[in-house]
Amino acid sequence: MRYLLMPCTVYTGTEVLPDHAVLINGERIEAVLPASGELPAEVPRRDGRGLHLCPGFVDLQIYGGGGVLFSVEPTPAVLARLRAHTLRHGTTSFMPCLPTSPPALMAQALATVQAALPTMPGLLGLHLEGPYINPLKKGAHQAEFIQTPTPQAIDELLTAAAGALRLMTLAPERVSPPVVARLRAAGVVLSAGHSAATYEEASAAFEQGVSTTTHLFNAMSGFESRAPGLVGAVYDAAQVQASIIADGVHCAYAALRISQKILGERLFLITDAVENSTYGAYRFHQQGDYFVDENGTLAGSALTMLTAVRNCVQHVGLPLPEALRMASLYPARVIGLANEIGRIAPGYRADMCLFDDDYQAHATIISGEFHAYSAAPHAYSAVPTA
């Protein structure tokens, strides 16, 4: 279907364009045009009502939300409900995540994601956070499931994954260079996390192909004057990226602001969102704006990506366009999709979020398909051009 969405303030990823229209043609963006200028005739229109229109969010680490927890029950039905939850809040591309888990659960999660990839728009693959992590920095992960990888184990994992494994968090000091090379050769993006790596160990891993870092500050060796640790190695690297949880609990907003000054475009947002759970290896309950496990250990956030963007603007002091890039363009770069998603520009996939000044999503567009939500004061309808 070909239609115009207008008028909106369009955040393209490089510019802010008030009173503009986006021409959508099937799954792609055809053009970005001034709403008051000459527009294609006989094209249906959807009323953007002057709201903010940004690229759809890209969440590379989400465990659950909307009443379901994929990391405890990685079934097709739960994955579908998680997909609906992310769309409701403007996230068009997402990567469900599994923590350090028993082999059978890992196999089930991989099989579920692999089966859904051909038919679920915006599903990017599976993020395995573990099992190759450091017990000293396990956080809420279960120590009994932590493994030390061997080349044979990696080959078995990649065979079982059948292309569904897209990102893996591991502790660089626990993984040999041949293992890193094998995973990278299979196209898996590697992220340093749950790690007690020294500055030297982390820097060496970055040279070997570990290209990003999982939830900066949390469950990793910190920055000290004589031991810069993993945090220092990220700061000092030229290209390595880092995710961060912008809820004011996992790290102070001041720490996020300082890190953004240092890292710039290398810092991106994740939700690390979980959900209440009373069974399985991971049992969580909500405590204010975050979740803890049975031992009271911080275990995940209650964020959506749109809330994380709001926090970056209101509490960190970042400009809205930069906060939006941290939630869309920058994570798209991490997984090599910055020429496909993360911008509003001709040729890009028509993945977008329409939201108001209170950071409430009114509509999500995914592959050109328009989903309106109750945040809007009145229903949307396609109105033909007069």
Rank of each mutant, 00 (worst) to 15 (best):
R49Y: 05
T119D: 13
L82V: 01
D358M: 02
P121A: 07
S191W: 11
Y380D: 15
G317W: 08
T159Q: 13
D357K: 03
T169L: 10
S277I: 03
S176R: 07
T213R: 02
C251V: 05
L87Y: 12
A205T: 06
L263M: 13
L105M: 14
T9V: 13
P7S: 12
V249R: 14
P228K: 04
A202I: 03
H141E: 03
A372W: 08
D19I: 08
P346W: 15
K261L: 15
T169C: 07
R226F: 02
L306T: 06
A202H: 07
L269E: 04
K261R: 15
D293L: 05
A116H: 08
L306E: 13
P74T: 02
A107K: 07
F291A: 04
C97T: 09
A192L: 02
G13I: 10
G232P: 03
R83G: 11
Q360H: 11
S93F: 03
S374D: 13
L79E: 13
A281T: 14
Y199M: 05
I133G: 06
V32C: 08
A252D: 11
D47R: 08
Q260G: 02
T213K: 02
K137A: 10
I365M: 13
E207V: 09
R49I: 04
Y282C: 06
V309I: 15
C312A: 04
R349M: 11
L69D: 00
L329N: 01
S221M: 11
V309S: 06
Y380T: 13
P331T: 03
